[in-house]
């Protein structure tokens, strides 16, 4: 028997499920788990003889075919050549607003995070933006963000074909309903129930009393994560890969 599936492996597998059907997925800097999830989808599709998935990992030499520099990702997104992307967020609120800048008042935020990166743009243009925030707490999932790096919803005068698709944390999975501008609880991860989620989520959402458990990967998929995916991650995320369980 191999070591049981870790929380991170469950999230990697869940990301691959959320990406099902995409042709081109890009992953930004400092995002090892989204990178792993995208690589896993690519590997699973290869294994099962499904459509080839283009994975563009920013910062990678091996897993990135852009030749037009860092701007090419943004041009691709604007043209509809990019199906999925990931955003983190120090704070995410119930309307799908994302804050990557900091808490408290701008500009002298008492807690400052790196910054908005490409979020203010990609959120409008990439159809499936997966919000990924490992920490599920009242300080990360808030009623209203302190700073809007990228807004969750927009009125009709502004061109928008993209936006939030799902929110994944270390405790639960939500979908985002664009018409309503609200999240819906889809499943809780093993070890958590809906009451835990209600108590640690700072915003209101639909389907509060959700009894669905997030599915775990089967043995073969887990072996793929611990083998090929762990190796592929090494180039950009040596520390993260080093901390993952290995094969056998």
């Amino acid at each position: 028997m191999s070591e049981p599936c870790t929380s991170r492996e469950l999230m990697i597998y869940t990301i691959s499920r959320l990406l099902k059907g995409v042709r081109h997925v890009a992953v930004g800097q400092s995002s090892p788990m989204p990178a792993a999830g995208a690589m896993l989808l690519r590997a699973l599709n290869e294994r099962d003889g499904l459509e080839r998935v283009q994975v563009s990992i920013l910062g990678s030499v091996k897993h990135n075919s852009f030749t037009g520099g860092a701007e090419e990702l943004f041009d691709c997104a604007a043209q509809g050549r990019l199906d999925a992307f990931f955003l983190g967020g120090g704070q995410i609120d119930g309307q799908g607003n994302v804050n990557l800048v900091g808490t408290g008042d701008y500009p002298n935020n008492p807690v400052r995070w790196p910054g908005s990166f490409g979020s203010a743009y990609l959120y409008f243009l990439v159809p499936r933006v997966i919000l990924f925030r490992e920490e599920h707490s009242l300080r990360s999932l808030v009623e209203r963000v302190d700073f809007v790096s990228a807004p969750g919803v927009t009125d009709e005068t502004v061109y928008r074909r993209g936006g939030p698709h799902a929110l994944l944390t270390n405790a639960a999975l939500f979908s985002f309903k664009r018409e309503a501008g609200r999240f819906r609880l889809e499943s809780t991860h093993p070890g958590y129930d809906w009451r835990d989620i209600r108590g640690t989520t700072g915003f209101v959402y639909d389907n509060e009393q959700c009894e669905v458990t997030t599915p775990s990967p089967d043995e073969a998929t887990l072996a793929l994560i611990r083998g090929r995916i762990r190796e592929e991650l090494r180039e950009c995320y040596p520390q993260f890969a080093g901390n993952m369980p290995g094969p056998g």
Binding site: E71, Y106, P107, N108, N109, R112, F117
Partner: peptide
Amino acid sequence: FSRAVRDGSIRLRDATCPAVF
């Protein structure tokens, strides 16, 4: 960077990557 933001010792112009490009 975080310290300078808190202190207000730098003038900050936050952007988004494609806007810089």
